[in-house]
Design a protein around this nucleic acid. Structure first.
Length: 104
DNA sequence: GCTTTGACACTAA
DNA sequence: CTTAGTGCCAAAG
């Protein structure tokens, strides 16, 4: 199984109204890296064409900061997250303390 | 097969 | 808190 497949599976496991960080996903995907793994996740997201199977919009930075979105951009991503029921900070960040998803 | 780039993370100023 | 620099791994050209 490619890193992409593992990452996709982990991301697809994220429930609605929850978000996960690139680093977290990388770790869950089995990529136990200090920080580099997060990059692989970003690549996988960008390379991901099945946005329906992989809700990349639920993936945020380590600080709950939105990085990018290969569909409608950060703007669209933020809207989707709000629609999911996630609140944003004045800086446009997400409260990881409340919405951070942790695998069982 | 090597070089460049990238949806990150962390530390320092 | 913001900006800049460095380190990491993998995919694309």
């Amino acid at each position: 199984m490619n890193s992409f497949e593992k990452i996709y599976k982990v991301v697809s496991k994220i429930p609605q109204g929850k978000v996960a960080t690139y680093k977290q996903i990388a770790k869950l995907a089995g990529i136990n890296l200090p920080t580099g793994g997060a990059r692989v996740v970003g690549i996988a997201m960008h390379a991901n064409k099945d946005i329906i199977k992989v809700p990349c919009h639920r993936v945020v930075g380590s600080n709950g900061k939105l990085t990018g979105y290969a569909r409608g951009g950060i703007k669209e991503k933020r809207r989707i997250l709000e629609k999911e029921g996630i609140s944003f900070d004045l800086k446009g960040n997400i409260d990881l303390k409340k919405y951070l998803f942790h695998s069982n």
